[in-house]
């Protein structure tokens, strides 16, 4: 009899303990393997980024830049761009306002190469994934352009074409920027910059009319043009 009572009691006690423990599962136990809990599919805590910018592509340049954050506050972006095709977008617009010789018409720019260097000071954002920054963006581009040149004549004025004229463009902008991570390892950024740029054309032919000899004379000149400008740029990046 007593054995039966003892057995019944044991059964009850075990049932209670089962009841008490049945809710506990391994996932409820505190765990210090936090990496699995932090894995939300988004790359975090990286300091390397490859970026494609929209502004150079307007001028027909294709390329990318690489940025590395050396400290929490300081990052450096270097970029290279190449232009293989003819294009005439911003340069045409800009060079039309040149103080170039009378009648000079810009046709198109051809092969070119560009470089940029962009040191940044990050105001917010510990890693490159997101942040706000301010920096100085220095861009240089050198390319070949074709020009139509005005040729004065005693009978009828004509135009002559000069091909592969060496041109260059330099700009320095003070840039405010902000970038944000989206998706697993992509970033989207927006920048606003104010600064100066300089356009150079080297050895551009200039035709002038010589009244004494009644013929046009060719001279070669260098043209420089400076202006204050602003830039709005968008960028897409991939975190490495």
């Amino acid at each position: 009899m007593t054995n039966k009572v003892l057995l019944a009691m044991l059964f009850v006690v075990s049932a209670f303990s089962v009841n008490a423990q049945k809710n506990k599962s391994k996932s409820d136990e505190p765990s210090n393997n936090i990496s699995s809990f932090l894995n939300d599919g988004r790359v975090k805590g990286v300091n390397n980024l490859i970026r494609i910018r929209l502004a150079p592509s307007f001028m027909g340049y294709m390329g990318a830049s690489y940025e590395r954050k050396f400290t929490e506050k300081f990052g450096l972006e270097v970029g290279a761009n190449v232009k293989t095709n003819k294009s005439a977008i911003w340069e045409e617009y800009r060079e039309a306002h040149f103080n170039a010789p009378f009648g000079t018409e810009y046709i198109a720019s051809k092969k070119g190469i560009g470089f940029s260097i962009f040191p940044k000071y990050y105001k917010y954002g510990k890693y490159i994934n997101h942040g706000r920054y301010i920096g100085l963006q220095l861009n240089t581009r050198s390319f070949k352009s074709d020009f139509n040149l005005y040729v004065p004549s005693s009978i009828m004025d004509t135009y002559a074409t000069q091909s592969d004229v060496a041109c260059s463009y330099k700009s320095l902008f003070l840039v405010w920027g902000n970038q944000r991570q989206f998706g697993s390892r992509f970033t989207f950024g927006m920048e606003l910059g104010f600064g100066v740029n300089q356009d150079n054309i080297k050895k551009l032919n200039q035709y002038t009319w010589d009244d004494i000899n009644s013929k046009s004379i060719i001279t070669q000149i260098d043209v420089k043009h400076n202006q204050i400008t602003m830039q709005i740029d968008l960028s897409l990046g991939i975190l490495l």
């Binding site: 505190p30 936090i34 809990f37 932090l38 894995n39 939300d40 599919g41 988004r42």
Partner: peptide, 14 residues
């Protein structure tokens, strides 16, 4: 605390 968008869970850490 951390909102894990992939796992759709909020975790509490100590």
């Amino acid at each position: 605390y951390f909102n894990n968008r992939k796992a759709r869970k909020q975790y509490l850490f100590a």
